[in-house]
Design a protein around this nucleic acid. Sequence first.
DNA 1: CTGAAAGCGCTTACAG
DNA 2: CTGAAAGCGCTTACAG
Lengths: 335, 335
Amino acid sequence: MATIRELARHCGVSVATVSRVFNTPEVVSRETRQRVEAAAAEIGYLPNESARTLATKKSNMIGLVWDTDHRRSGWRHPFLQEILVALKTALSAQGLHLLLLATGADEPDRHLRAVRRHNLDGVVLIDNGSRDPAVLGLAEAGIPCVALDLPLTGPCCTYVTSDNAGGAGQAADHLVTRGHRRIATITGPARTGPGAERLAGFRAALAAHDVALPPEYVVEGDFYLDSGRAAMHRLLSLGTPPTAVFAAGDEMAIGALQAATAAGRRTPDDIAIVGFDDIELAALIPPGLTTVAQDRTGFGTAAAEALIAMIRAAPEVPAPPPIVLPTTLTARGTA
Amino acid sequence: MATIRELARHCGVSVATVSRVFNTPEVVSRETRQRVEAAAAEIGYLPNESARTLATKKSNMIGLVWDTDHRRSGWRHPFLQEILVALKTALSAQGLHLLLLATGADEPDRHLRAVRRHNLDGVVLIDNGSRDPAVLGLAEAGIPCVALDLPLTGPCCTYVTSDNAGGAGQAADHLVTRGHRRIATITGPARTGPGAERLAGFRAALAAHDVALPPEYVVEGDFYLDSGRAAMHRLLSLGTPPTAVFAAGDEMAIGALQAATAAGRRTPDDIAIVGFDDIELAALIPPGLTTVAQDRTGFGTAAAEALIAMIRAAPEVPAPPPIVLPTTLTARGTA
DNA sequence: CTGAAAGCGCTTACAG
DNA sequence: CTGAAAGCGCTTACAG
């Protein structure tokens, strides 16, 4: 492990000059620069990141706060992997690394402590509870952070989310265009952002088409399979059952599909179904789930861009506005 | 951001003593220790990790090399998320953090460089190509590392894998016990470890039952859905088609199921199917895929344990032997 | 364009 | 059990 001092001696310059070659190359003469660069390659010099961080107070590391606790156990993020890849790709293009923060003890300042100990340049939040004080603490402390699907704002915070209302509207439009008038919905929990937004968007779109949405056509689920099954069961037992259902999540949509099939209804003829998310399963399960696809890669890319912008910007520059990603209706067999 | 010097002054001791309170508390007097601890809490002192790393050459960080490039694009690891959670949990219990290494340019020493720059204590490899020189370079350099599902060995390397042969044997046993004699298999690529091992285990188990495996009953797939579909199509068109099929991966099994259904065969009566992996979909798709489940959490936990053992061990201690996780046959509707 | 020097915040022999 | 001091490998004003 060659150090900067060895490299400097090796080419007869000061350590300051070597440092400049790596940090502000434009400031050193071309001849010196080339000599140092060649020598660096020759002896395999690698700058020590800890020493750099200690001297500059910037670690070139982004913390990833991925809360694996607050959800029902067994919960799997529908596209965590894509987000991670996009994030990693976009950040590493800027020389930033991703540090997975442990969600350890329940101290409300645990994230902030990690940020300070490691001199993290910023934080990305995935799948966090909306009222987690550890998350709010980050925002208040002025740490650059961007949340995914969580409306977190502050002087140095922003978030990225899908156009949940718009996507639900696309679902409604699609069903109306297919001739449906009796359209029900299985919602997510009303207290969740996506749950509430998708219901609102769905309701607004139906209203725009002059299609009524009676109260018994709105049944709340919890985004999991079973709740979709139960909801469909209930809808089918109504005096005037719907001819189409929009489920605010694919897993619920699949549960609904199974319940409909079990009840002897054919999809899409007896009952049409549209989901939300476009999980992997959606394309695989017969007859193919029609669903509203989110921009999976966009989450990671947009988050990285926003974060980098905040990190590079002067402190007084306000945080970028929330980023709302458009959705795409993907028509398959169920509607 | 209080420093160790401020804290030391605050309680009238030397910085050395403060350092000992945090690193070797048993060596300082109880009275001094408590005084320092109280003061630390009071002024919110947090040790600076970069400074510690610089002084000790140990970062308490583990590199995560997760190769997102070598697979077909769109490839998703069947249970990356569970592995990450288990890994994170087990490592953070030891005060270790996980640093996601960027798979940037194609330099064969890119991982090693990252390890050296950041003073990483060890590396976990997920989903890497078997002949990646950057991976072999790590092993040769004597960096403590553990690979997942990749037979990487060395003075300081080990790996964890499922008992692929045993699991395939469980599938064979199950089908024979159900009375099948004409049993085919859809394999993974022969060049992949899991592909080869599952075929070998399957073959051995059938032989143990005196059940023949004619060459036309072995058709190679690529672990993806379409190859399962195509393979089943071929098997059903045989002069003497099988009554049961073991697919070496769930996605292929589901493809096979779809092809059988499309061909008018009923599962499990006309054709039984067993998969491998127990992906989420397996339980959801009717009639429920019978499959060989891997110990998803075990991967992360075992990897963390092995890595920690290597890091803590003296240099001359040999690396732990490969860890082979048992599988579990999960019987559902298809066999 | 370049160098000497101070400083970043810790740890750890070495004395006592 | 505790302290003074050297050292970890860099960066960055400050001079020149």
